[in-house]
Every structure is written in structure tokens, then in C-alpha cells.
Design a protein around this nucleic acid. Sequence first.
DNA 1: ACGAGCGCCTGTCGGC
DNA 2: TGCCGACAGGCGCTCG
Length: 275
Amino acid sequence: MPELPEVETIRLRLLHDSAESPSVAGRAIQGVQVLWEGVVDRPDPETFQQKLVGQEIVHIGRRGKFFIFELSEDWLLIHLRMSGDLLLRTAVDEPAKHDRLILDLEGGLRMAFNDTRKFGRVYLVSDPQEVVADLGPEPLDEGFSPHEFYAMLQSRSRLLKPLLLDQRFIAGLGNIYVNEALYRAKLHPMRISDSLSKDESTRLLAAIREALLQGIQHKGASIDWVYRGGGFQDYFHVHDRAGEPCPTCGETIWRILVGQRSTFYCPGCQRLPEE
DNA sequence: ACGAGCGCCTGTCGGC
DNA sequence: TGCCGACAGGCGCTCG
């Protein structure tokens, strides 16, 4: 489940303390099962397992689409990529299909990294910057200003859609939220970044934040055959809605390919300026 | 500094 | 019914 709102939703769920779903924070890791070795990016799977056992989960943070588990000694970073999920189970459960990593925690709780497509990775490091140093700004960071965003857009000459998907430019956006943000900003996905006016740039940042916050509010999106509880898909304006009428102007929503990714937009609301 | 093409995986869906 | 291609919330690589 991979974009910022989905990662944030899972993070809050793992930290939230309730009767049916107790928090993982403050619990020691008592056992580690690497069910598919490819899931461990670093160090090697044996060292990963040995170093992890005995450490306590102090807190879970987030940077872009990465979970950042603060442990008593090291840092565990997790990226879900396309199909990953972090699930809480009880320790007596049998591993489920596509479970790649299982952490058995103090108190009979178990956290499973389930990932159908095997794209997801975990990293055990002494400094999170080893993994996330190149990420762009956090879009929801209040210190990230429209002025700064405008300067960033001006400094590049790229199509908006692939630029916003580039995690080194801005962190946390994926295909759904870029499609939704560009629609809300009324900007064509193939606009060139340094052609945006200051107003358009300010509108775009506001639209990015609006889409992300709506996503978080609805506990993420559940598209796909894997239902994960979120409801943002019911509030998509253009994503996955090719052929349907635009909620604003009634024109038919189009699907095109930009940078090899499905791109949904309204040809009425999101116009390219005349040549 | 760009975008295009492709690989990594498993699964679903629609067309024939 | 089966087969086959397109496609899926991501990202890293090479190439021109």
C-alpha cells in the first residue's frame, strides 16, 4: 500500500493502543523469521536476524514512503513498494501466504511484512540517513514553503507528472496522489515544471497537501484485490475514472501514458497552454 | 538533465 | 473453459 497516506495510516495503526490491536511501541523483538531472503536489503539476512533479536521498538516514524522504526540500538527502515503491508497478528497464527518477514514481539504480538509482489525491502542500519538521505522535502512539513516549492520547480525542466513522482524531488507521492493533486490544481500532467507561474506553483502545493490530507482522513485508498480498510478510492476525482464525466466540468476523463505510468486527467479542466 | 525502455514479481481482469 | 496480453499504489538501471 504504498503512498504517503497509506504508510501513515499503517504507522498510526501500529502505534495505536487498543484492546484488539495493541501498540508495538515499547515491545522487545523476541524472534525474527525471514521467510524470503530477498526482502532484506541490508545487512545480510543472518546478521539482520541476529542484530534484531533483543532490541526494543522505541517508536515508529515516517519519511516519505519509508517506515522508520527506532530501535534500542539500530534503525529498521521498511519500504512497502507496490504490494507490501504491515499486519498485526497473534504469535500463534500460521504465517500467511506472501508473508516475507515476521517479528515476534513481547506479549504474544506479531508483526508480519506481507508482500505479494516481493518488491518491498527492509533495511537495518545505524543511521537512517544511509537510506533516506536523498529524499526531497516532506510535502506536509509546515516549514516547506510555496516559495521554496516554486524555486524547486523553476530549477528543473521536466514534465510535472514524472517530476512529482521522483522521490528526490518531493517525498511520498505516488501515482494516485499525483493524479489527484494535478486535477485539484487544474494543471495538465505534461506541463513543464519551469513554465509554471508563481500562482500555479502555489496552487499545486496546496493541491498536493489537500489530496494527501484527504487520503489520510479516509485511512488511505484500497484499490486492488487486497482490501486494506481505507476508503479514499470513493473520493477519487480522476484516478482510475477514465470514461467517466469530470465532477467539475462534465467532460470525459482521459487516461494517457506519461513516463510509462497511467495518468488520468480532465481535458477540460487541465489544459495545456497554447503553443 | 532529460525521457524511454526494461527488469523485478505475483495476481487479476477482459477479450477471444 | 483456457490462453494471452495488459495492467497494478514503486523504483533502480541503462541508454541515447
